[in-house]
């Protein structure tokens, strides 16, 4: 895949933003209200939704992979990698499929992504624990993903509205020939 300098820069900025958001959501410990391992707001999903529409699936996937690997490195916890990768990739695939349908708005796409993310993480928990006990949490996690998905959908919708007045995207697709 050949990226223009502008695209590469935007990918890097979005990766940094996703990492910052994953860190930021630790300040809102949802797990205190609902004590389930792995429950969280999924703010980094906003970046994935944005990248999917603004840059296309391939670059959104690159950002996701970079975010998962760097997140695991910064947390010093490689065990977390399988959780974020399985959750993130499942969410990504579902959102690529859902966003292909022109009928759905960003809300539907992010709710689907949030639900898929939780399914992926529960699968990762079942794999690492070698025990099906985490499945017990799946119904609650899916219920919560309706709320968190709607929230990230709302933020994404605000983001797209705000960016509609800028020229951020106009240069992206025909962004010159400076291969990077």
């Amino acid at each position: 895949m050949k990226l223009t300098t502008k695209q590469l820069t935007l990918c890097a900025v979005l990766t940094a933003l996703a990492l910052a958001l994953s860190y930021l959501e630790n300040l809102f410990p949802l797990s205190l209200a609902i004590p389930i391992p792995g429950i969280k707001l999924g703010l980094a999903n906003i970046v994935t939704v944005f990248a999917l529409y603004a840059l296309g699936p391939a670059q959104a996937f690159l950002i996701l992979l970079a975010r998962c690997f760097l997140g695991a490195v910064f947390a010093g916890n490689m065990n977390a990698l399988i959780f974020s990768l399985l959750g993130g990739v499942t969410a990504m695939v579902v959102m690529i499929v859902l966003s292909g349908s022109r009928c759905l708005s960003v809300y539907g796409v992010s709710v689907g992504g949030a639900a898929a993310h939780n399914c992926g993480q529960v699968a990762a928990a079942v794999l690492t624990l070698g025990n099906t006990a985490p499945l017990y949490y799946l119904p609650v996690l899916l219920g919560v993903s309706l709320l968190t998905g709607a929230l990230t959908g709302l933020v994404s919708a605000c983001l797209f509205r705000a960016l509609a007045h800028t020229n951020l995207n106009t240069g992206l697709d025909q962004g010159g020939t400076h291969g990077a």
Partner: peptide, 26 residues
């Protein structure tokens, strides 16, 4: 922008929500 997404929730989003809720109940 590759594709500008729809920004208002519509009935199809409701279908996704219902599907997730049905999966949770199942």
């Amino acid at each position: 922008m590759r594709r500008s997404p729809k920004l208002r929730p519509n009935l199809w989003d409701g279908v996704v929500v219902l599907a997730v809720a049905a999966l949770a109940v199942a």
